[in-house]
Structures are given as C-alpha cells and as structure tokens.
Design a binder for these strands. Structure first.
Length: 718
DNA sequence: CTGAAGGCTAC
DNA sequence: TCTCGTAGCCTTCAG
C-alpha cells in the first residue's frame, strides 16, 4: 500500500518524499525540483494532502554542477547529484527503457521565471542528458517544465489571459494593437512573491502550468552540447548567431524541444550573464555597477552613509533584483583604493574596505562600512549629460540609463575583469593622463601613442615583454651580504599569497633557496627580509632576484572584450578602445549644444515679449491704470496675462534688457564654442582634479615618511 | 601535457 | 550569520 520505505532513512533531510514514491505506483509519482527553499515552500503550500501521495519536492540550493565539464571525481563528490541518485534511485551508466526501476516516473523543474532560473533548468537538462540520456529519449517526457505566469491581463468583459514570457506577451500585444490598451496588465515578480492561494491554483490546474521537454533527435543533443560543453569557440558562434535573431520562436504549446529551449530561451540567460559580467565600451560599467552609480546620483550620496543602507536604496531605486549582499560587494570593490585596484575610485571607502594583503578579501562586513560619492564622480559623469541619456524602464518606471557616457573611457582607468558565457574579459588599468593625451590626439586626427598599463602608487616597473604581454616587476635590494629586502610586489600579487610563495621557497622540497623570511608591516605596506641560503646565493644573484623570488607577473591585453550595443567586441589595444569611444562623446556635446541653444532661444523670446509688454504699457498701447484685471486680460495676447505680475516700471524694463543682453552673449559664446572646445573644458576640469589628489597624496606620503622614520632593520643572522 | 587555482557577479 | 560550493573563460603555475 504505502510506498517502499526501504532505504528511506538515508534519503536527504530536505526531501519531502511522495507517499507512493518507490512503491508499486512509483511510476505515477512526480518529483518537483525547486529553485531554492522558498520555492519549495510555495510548492508545499500548493500541494494539498491528497496530492502528496504522488508529488515529492526537493529544493536545489545554488547552481547545479555542469557535469559535461566536470571530472568523474567531481561528479561523485557532488552533494546534489548524490542526493538526486538516492531520491530517484538512479544508477550511473544504466540504459533506461522505462522508468519502472525508479522511485519517481517523472521530474518537474520548478525554477524562477528569470534568467538565472532558465540557467538552472538548463543545468538540470544538461545533467540528465549527459549522465542518463536514455531517460530523455523515452517516448513519454521524463522532464517537465513548470511554467508560472509572468504577466496577466484582465478585461472588463473578456476572460483574463496569462503569459509565461515577455515574448509571448509582446506577440499578443502586436497582434491586436488597437485593443491591447483596453486590458490592464499585471506583472508577477517571480515564484518567491507568489501567494499561497496562487500556489494552490497552480497545482489544482497543474496541466496548464506545465510544458513537456521533447527529444526530437541528435540536434537536441548537439544544442545542449554547444551550450554546456567544453568548447567555448562553439559557444561564441552560437551566441553571435542567436543574439541577433529577430525572428520569434515558433508556436508555443505545452511542448518544447530541447533545441528550442537552448536556442530561444537559454540564450537569454547567456546575454544577461554577459551584461552583468562585461562592461560596455561607453561607460566601462557592468549592469550592477551602473545601477549603483545611478542610485548614488539620484539620492545625491554626498554624505557618508552606511553601506547596508545604500545597498538597499540601490535595490529600490534601480530595481536591482538580485541579492543585496552581492550589490554590497560590488560597491566595496568600486570604493577600494589600495595599490592594484582602482586608479580613480568613484566612492569613498570609509572603514575597512580591504587591503592589498589579500586583494581586498579582508574587507569588513557591510554593516561596519560607510561610503559616499567622491567629487570626481560628477566630473567624469557630468550632470549636464543626464537629460541626454536613454533610460531603462521597468513597468513604466524610469530606471538607470542604458549606458552612461563618462568624459573618458572609465574602463581604461579602473580596468575590468569579468567572466561571462562564451566570453570573458580582462582590461588592465592605465594612466588617466595618458588616456586624456590620446583622446586629444584622436580629436586632432594625430596618431595615438601606444599606452603601457599603469597603476596608481605602484612603485615597481611595468614594461612590454611580448605581443600583447606586459610584465610588472616587484622591487628588492641587498641589505647586506646575506639579506635581501623585498619592498614591492608585482601588480596582482597579494602579500598573504606571497608569504606562501616565500615559505614554499624556504621548503623547496628539502633544498631551501632561502634560509629564513621575516615580514614587517610598517603600517602602510609590507616589507619582506629574506636570508639567502649559502648554497643558492650565487645562483640567485646570477639569475636575478626578481625571477628567483617570483617577483614578475604578466598583464596581458589578449582578452579585452567589451559590450557595444548588446554585441561583444574584441579589442587588441587600449588605443582601439579610445578610438571607439571619443566620437560618441563628441556627439553628446553636439546634442548638449543643440539642447542648450533651444533652451536659450526660448528664454530670449520670453524676455523679448516681456520687454515689449512693458514698453506697450509705457506708451499707452495697453491701458492698465484704473482698470479691472479681467478687463485688461481680454485685450491681451494669450500667454501675456502673467506679465501683469511684473512690476510695471521702467526699472523693471531696464533690468530685463540687461538680462536679455546677457542671454544674447551666452548665445554668442555657445555658437562660437564647438563640441571639441566643450570637451576640452571637461577634460581640463578632470585634469585639475587629478593634480589636486596627487598633491594630497604626496603630502600624505610625506607625513607618513616623517612619522615612520624608523626604517625596517633586517633581523640579525645568528 | 594535464589539472587546479584565481578573478567576479550571480544562485 | 557565515561558510561553502556552484557557473562561466582565460591565464598561470604546479605536478
């Protein structure tokens, strides 16, 4: 009667097993895999007691292992796969011709209706298709997609309709454009926000909320292999192809082939993944960073504010839908200013935002941190641009711009690292002055100077050592015959990691290269004193300490990808990035000029009308004295009524004429200024700000030097 | 030569 | 609350 309880005690704690699972009715049982614990709760509240006979629920926490790229050992030790095997009684390597030996007859994937949810479904499909392909090829679908409505439209007289994708909704709207506006539209924000009642509704009519995955043939396997296999080149090709499809997918019933899923739906995750991981050429920002900047400008974050407070404001103002912990980490990274991080940080780090001891991983918890915008932010992103940008909308609400246009390519100042689907990116940091100089050359149609990576306050050397390869070097010197002092590490090598390297050299498999290491922290930086082993001393001197002590690190320009209008573009040099950037920035000044001219013209016309009005009053053309206001208005041109509020004196007239003269002068100035000269003004402002902060830094360093007069003495050798 | 690890925004 | 494990790509380094 009841399900087979054999082995039930070893089933995972988080499983809500179907009562009939593993029994003679196991074939009629369905396992629901949910994305996260909150979706499991929704499923549980929707499944009434009688349904619990045949439905089991198991939550997945986090992303599922991509088995196609994993080693057998990794697959074996993966917790989720172990659990799944137990729950379904799956056996590796087994060919299934039916599901009779399993504890459940089919599996429903209940993932969120967002891009990451699609990815989760994809990873699960990938898992089954790789480990148990025979199950997906069974005539009756083994994998089922649970589809909750994303959008619901209601009408006064007609029956409500629901859509499970934005694409379906848009198709419907296009088809009946004339009447679409009669419907009111409701957007669901995903599984997490569904109510218990909605959960019940989904499971009462489960048939209209599911979609079967169908295996048609080899093309399905091939599509999955391209999306999840070990060949990124194939993936790049796939993304390029499906990123620009304007044709909509075929009819959407209650079935979908794996190939359709991959090419029409999974590709949307891929694009979202690129947009959050790879900056645009225009503003050098990833989507999350853009939301952060936007919110900081919008709420005018010029006073130190607790970081957790700011990050929750970002969620509200920019409709950031991911975890707040995540956005806090991004803000922390944007505010960090230790050597090797940002050349121009836009946010003030107040509190322990992390150090070069561990590349910033030692930052304090967000509740101990404060931040605010640095003044340079509004110099790089001028306020005057705000009206010229294009903004994203969500449910009709204005959000952050689709892209900003800082005055110089931010991505070259602060660099970029990111890992997306199909593409990753690495862009080194450069000297703002070099970038400015090259922009000026570009505008004057002169050849640009090749730039070498530059990191603020880095005292080591960086030079070109190959095609697309630059090497940064640490610094060290002999203190005495036995001791070498290492005072500077190459870019990207953190002191904690370097300690490990030195200890490895000390051990060196029983043949020590160095005898001893001592580490000194002088408050701002680390200094290592290394005692050379007698045996290797000569060799170390001959081959060079930098090489011997691993004080060289490469910085490559071979993987520079940026987004440009939703397409990935590869750059080979930083100068190429500048060339793609500054013409757009110049165009923005043309826009700005046009807009300012229009506003000025309006103001001048208004002034002229006011002056004319006052003159007419003065000459008696308009009679004012001793009359009712309503009488006078009848004789006035429409729009002139408000001029009655003016003080009707010649003093007022003279003042307005003075104002008019000023405005006319402004027009003259505007007409004589070109986009280029306006650009130059903004660049000069940024340059003077750079000089200010450089002065400040050198003063700070001077004070440090004074207070740290005690130099670090090497430890005496015994 | 192969495998692992680091970097970063997400679940 | 914090830690851990996962995706995704490319480069470096250890075995």
């Amino acid at each position: 009667m009841a399900g087979n309880t054999e082995g039930r005690e070893v089933l995972p704690d988080k499983l809500e097993d179907a009562r009939q699972a593993g029994g003679k009715n196991s074939n009629r049982c369905t396992l629901i895999l949910t994305e996260g614990d909150s979706s499991k709760a929704l499923a549980m509240s929707g499944l009434t007691s009688d349904k619990r006979d045949f439905y089991g629920v198991y939550p997945i926490t986090g992303k599922v292992l991509n088995v196609r790229k994993a080693s057998p050992a990794q697959i074996n030790r993966n917790k989720f796969i172990q659990d799944l095997k137990k729950i379904l009684k799956l056996e590796l390597q087994k060919e299934y011709t039916d599901t009779s030996s399993l504890r459940y007859g089919r599996v429903i994937l209940m993932t969120d209706q967002d891009d990451d949810g699609t990815h989760m479904s994809g990873l699960l499909i990938n898992l089954f298709s790789f480990l148990w392909p025979s199950l997906l090829k069974l005539p009756s679908s083994f994998l089922i997609d649970f589809v909750t409505p994303l959008i619901k439209v209601t009408h006064e007289t007609k029956e409500a309709k629901t859509f499970s994708s934005l694409r379906e909704f848009k198709e419907w709207k296009e088809k009946d454009k004339a009447h679409a506006t009669e419907w009111s539209v409701k957007f669901y924000k995903g599984l997490g926000s569904s109510t218990v009642e909605e959960g019940m509704l989904y499971f009462n009519q489960i048939d209209i909320h599911v979609r079967e995955f169908v295996w048609e043939g080899d093309a399905d396997g091939e599509a999955i292999n391209i999306a999840f296999g070990g060949d990124p080149e194939k993936r790049k090709e796939w993304i390029r192809k499906y990123n620009q499809v304007d044709s909509l997918p075929g009819p959407r019933g209650n079935k979908i082939t794996y190939k359709e899923f991959v090419n029409n739906e999974l590709v949307l995750f891929t694009i979202a993944n690129l947009q959050r991981s790879i900056p645009t050429i225009f503003d050098g920002l990833k989507s999350g960073e853009r939301k952060i900047i936007f919110t900081a400008f919008k709420i005018d974050l010029t006073e130190l504010t607790p970081l957790d407070e700011f990050s929750s404001l970002v969620s509200q103002h920019s409709a950031y839908h991911h975890s707040r912990k995540c956005i806090s980490n991004v803000i922390i990274r944007m505010a960090q200013d230790f050597i090797g991080r940002n050349n121009v940080n836009l946010f003030e780090p107040s509190g322990q935002f992390g150090t070069s001891a561990s590349g910033g991983k030692d930052a304090a918890n967000e509740r101990y941190l404060h931040t605010k915008l640095k003044p340079v932010a509004r110099v790089l992103f001028p306020k005057a641009d705000d009206d010229l940008l294009e903004y994203n909308l969500e449910y009709g609400r204005k959000l952050e711009p689709t892209r900003y246009f800082p005055i110089i390519p931010l991505v070259l100042l602060n660099g970029a690292k990111g890992i997306g689907s199909g593409f990753s990116t690495f862009i080194p940091q450069y000297n703002p002055r070099d970038v400015i100089a090259n922009i000026r050359r570009g505008i004057k149609c002169e050849e640009m100077e090749p730039m070498v990576p530059w990191y603020r306050d880095f005292e080591g050397e960086i030079k070109k050592t190959g095609e697309g390869v630059y090497t940064s070097y640490g610094k060290c010197h002999d203190v005495n015959d036995n001791t070498v002092q290492i005072s500077v590490l190459p870019i990207g090598l953190w002191t904690d990691d370097y300690k490990k390297i030195l200890h490895a050299l000390k051990a060196n498999n029983g043949d020590p290269l160095i005898e001893d290491v001592s580490v000194h922290n002088d408050g701002t930086s680390m200094v290592f004193n290394v005692i050379l082993s007698k045996k290797h001393k000569k060799e170390a001197r001959r081959e060079g300490y930098l090489k011997k002590f691993k004080l060289e690190k490469n910085i490559t320009t071979t993987n520079m990808h940026l987004l440009m209008d939703e397409m990935i573009k590869k750059y080979h040099t930083p100068e190429e990035i500048i060339k793609d950037f500054y013409p757009h920035r110049l165009e923005l000044y043309e826009d700005r000029k046009e807009k300012m001219a229009l506003a000025l013209t309006r103001e001048i016309e208004e002034l002229q009308r006011k002056i004319q009005f006052l003159k007419d009053v003065d000459r008696g053309v308009i009679l004012v004295v001793g009359r009712l206001k309503s009488e006078i208005i009848k004789e006035l041109k429409s729009g002139d009524e408000k001029f009655l509020e003016l003080s009707l004196t010649m003093d007022q007239c003279i003042e307005l004429e003075k104002e008019l003269a000023e405005k006319n002068q402004e027009v003259g100035h505007l007409n004589s200024s070109s986009a280029e000269s306006m650009y130059e003004e903004d660049l000069k402002k940024f340059e003077s700000m750079l000089s200010e902060s450089e002065d400040l830094n050198s003063r700070k360093r001077g004070m440090m030097a004074l207070s740290c007069q005690r130099t670090v003495k090497p430890k005496k050798t015994q």
